[in-house]
Design a protein around this nucleic acid. Structure first.
Ligand SMILES: [Mn+2]
Ligand SMILES: [Mn+2]
Ligand SMILES: [Zn+2]
Ligand SMILES: [Zn+2]
Lengths: 145, 145
DNA sequence: TTAAGTAATAGTAACCGTTACTATTATTAT
DNA sequence: ATAATAATAGTAACGGTTACTATTACTTAA
């Protein structure tokens, strides 16, 4: 990834300017507003390059297409199984588990992927016409789809 | 899944008789030793049916094809990024996290997927010609590929 | 400031895992 | 046995992604 390219910059901007964990198609559509004849292949290639360079993060959502995250900080994701939105969770993972596993099994854990599937508060309300829970917005952000 | 079928039984047996978390191709090859003209489509369809019925579990491994697990007990997986083998980890996940997230964010967690990527002890030894660690075999099983 | 060298691109074909379709066969209930 | 229909084998189609190829655009050094 040595040379500059307008296309790669535009792709990066699109991802950095959303908190919605977009998929390739959405990114493609957005970037075409700037560069109408950009190739889908170019989008894929640069997404891979940007992820390899650590400028974005690639998410894997069970049974669905790739999604990307412009927020490369250490955080986890809450995936709503109803609306499909992905929320950020800024809560640390148990750090002791890696040492414990290594001591007990000899397996050296390098990365933990904790994915939490469930229902966002919007979908809970919608699903059952029930009580609303108070929650703290400062811990999660994003999820605008 | 009302009627019996020789094909489905054979597929289930293949999965139940290994601890290697096989993929579709391996299952297909194995079951063809019994039923040489079984269709790949039949394998896929029955894997889905068996997973829906809770008789097997479908794993999703980041960036690779589906794998299946005949062990439906509550356990997690250690995935070796070098040899690709998948080991079972019988260690409970932090149960408090779900309540904590719900209280703080309103998100109702239904399922936790904790995937631990790293190096198995074999691959560590192989990678660096270094000391061998003692580990407890009773906590993990499988991984024969 | 050209020219050479070569990343990066647009456009498109190919790929791979999976699902859908269709005519035929096997299982079940009467 | 017969009828109803679930399941199958074989194959086509699909969706997401990667690979290929000719062209374009940076970059460096005469
Ligand atoms: Mn995120
Ligand atoms: Mn397992
Ligand atoms: Zn939701
Ligand atoms: Zn290994």
């Amino acid at each position: 990834m040595s040379r500059k390219s307008i296309q790669r910059d535009a792709i990066l901007q699109v991802i950095k300017n959303t908190t919605s964990h977009p998929g390739v198609d959405w990114i493609y559509d957005e970037v075409r507003k700037e560069i109408p004849n950009i190739s889908l292949g170019t989008v894929y290639r640069n997404l891979r390059l940007l992820a390899q360079a650590g400028e974005i993060r690639e998410l894997d959502i069970p049974g669905s297409a790739k999604r990307f995250d412009g927020d490369t900080s250490n955080h986890r994701h809450l995936i709503c199984e109803k609306c499909g939105r992905i929320f950020d969770l800024y809560e640390a993972v148990d750090p002791k588990i890696e040492a414990r596993i290594f001591q007990k099994t000899g397996f050296k854990v390098k990365r933990q992927y904790l994915k939490l599937i469930g229902l966002c508060s919007d979908c809970q309300k919608q699903e059952e016409q029930l009580k609303t829970y108070i929650y703290d917005n400062s811990l999660i952000k994003g999820g605008e789809k």
